[in-house]
Write a protein that binds this DNA or RNA. Structure first.
Lengths: 262, 262
DNA sequence: CGAAGGCTTGATTCAGATCAATTCTTGTGG
DNA sequence: CCACAAGAATTGATCTGAATCAAGCCTTCG
């Protein structure tokens, strides 16, 4: 058991939370990273496909994901499920810097999950943002990224073809995991079932399967077990219009932007 | 000309900004409402289908919509357009309470639009939230509503049928407009083209047309000119699972929630 | 080893897209 | 005030991407 937990750690969150930290894509100073570590609560584990929070719950206890994947989700009355966004290792579920935040959707685990309570951090950043500038910036950056991905999710589902959706989502996963050191070159572990992908992509599980087959046949991706490899990353990104959020956020320098955007 | 502008005002924002204000669904005290009014910049008008801001632009000048409708939007390289969310009279485009916010998508007008610069308000609330509690609460509430509707948008597009999507969006419009006093009973003015609806709903314009026809035939809605009337509002809401955001946000009192949510 | 869940594949259906007119509105200039 | 042009809405015909249904086959894990 403790053995399995160790394996999870190694697999999904190797060194990222060890010494000096990268947090939300921001490198923390020694001072703030040790502060962060001190705020972390005990590790909790959750089984796959478990409800963690419900719509309307108070978001006073954000949780940092050590390992495993989770999501926000809404259900229709007949059981149809829509996954709104995914949470990957290093993400914080239910992060909000408002006074009395409320969950706007359900939170659920998609795999076995290890999380740490990070409510202390929330309080810290909420009450004294100026004293912890890096942590504050990191939290804000995470929120902005979350919204960026929500907008991507809408575009994917609303106007892209199945093969574009899958490619786009895989690129997003790769990009996000690489920030936490969870990629190896263009490969990463994708621990989701095809059904969990389908419910995020607005497709049926069967069609996700066929779409993977298509992408494999075209030598754009390789999938073996849970390992996904993006062959031709640039071609993929071109094909589905994928863009890194940081291309926008760090674009202080470019008044002349690409003609594609609006 | 000035005549047309007056007509617009009467049509889309009659009394809401006149005396003591309701702002973001919050009733302002006399003090804060007059403060708000003093912060408002001059009225600007914009033609329909005009780009107001581009991805990556600094969001330092949020604009309050006096009349007309707008949206956030992303384009794919081949011209496909996805509308991410709509902005209605009384909404603020580009509201962010972060230090250096950036537009995560393009902003565009969908109709003739009248807006007022509200950057002063942003600064006020950003720097001294405690001195203007109502305005601060209102801004926050607007942000939360915006995210709530983004999540609804995902569920609509990802997992609902065309007729559910249309019904759900109409209910959202009605609910939002009623907060600004822009409904008459179950009727409201919908100044969008079917194409603008289609690009928000992830459908083709032709299919939006047919879906309206279906809803009319079933006596669920009536459409004449730009006026939409929701007959059978409860039946519609039931059919598409529409819920008011405030049902969640003000649910402090209900630890036992409906079984539908998650 | 066996059961259950997940993956894969084939056959069929269907919701919604696309293409192509036609008609209706609306705003404009004379 | 009227005529007209441009943009919307509407409708029909056809096509297609993705859903659904139904097996069978792998994995995984107790």
């Amino acid at each position: 058991m403790s053995n399995v937990m160790k394996a999870d750690l190694d697999r999904y969150a190797p060194a990222a939370f060890g010494g000096v930290l990268t947090f939300g894509g921001i490198n923390l100073s020694r001072a703030e990273s040790s502060l962060l570590v001190r705020q972390l609560g005990a590790i909790q584990t959750h089984r796959p496909n478990v409800r963690l929070m419900s719509e309307g719950d108070a978001l006073d206890r954000p949780r940092l994901i050590r390992s495993g994947w989770a999501c926000r989700v809404r259900f229709l009355s007949d059981g149809r499920r829509q996954i709104l966004n995914y949470y990957l290792p290093g993400d914080i579920m239910g992060l909000s810097l408002e006074p009395d935040p409320v969950a706007l959707a359900g939170y659920a685990s998609l795999t076995r999950l290890m999380t740490m309570d990070i409510g202390q951090l929330r309080t810290l950043v909420l009450d004294h943002p100026d004293e912890y500038p890096e942590l504050t910036a990191a939290c804000r950056k995470m929120k902005v990224h979350e919204e960026y991905y929500l907008l991507s999710q809408i575009t994917r589902i609303g106007r892209q073809k199945a093969y574009e959706r899958v490619a786009h989502l895989l690129l997003e996963f790769h990009s996000r995991l690489s920030r936490t050191g969870l990629t190896e070159g263009s490969s990463f572990q994708l621990p989701l079932t095809q059904e969990a992908l389908a419910d995020g992509l607005g497709l049926s599980a069967v069609h996700v399967n066929r779409t993977f087959k298509l992408l494999k046949r075209k030598n754009l991706v390789r999938v073996e077990r849970a390992t996904v490899t993006l062959l031709e990353r640039d071609a993929l990104a071109e094909m589905c219009g994928f863009r890194e959020p940081d291309d926008l956020l760090e674009a202080d320098t470019t008044p002349e932007r690409a003609a594609v955007s609006f």
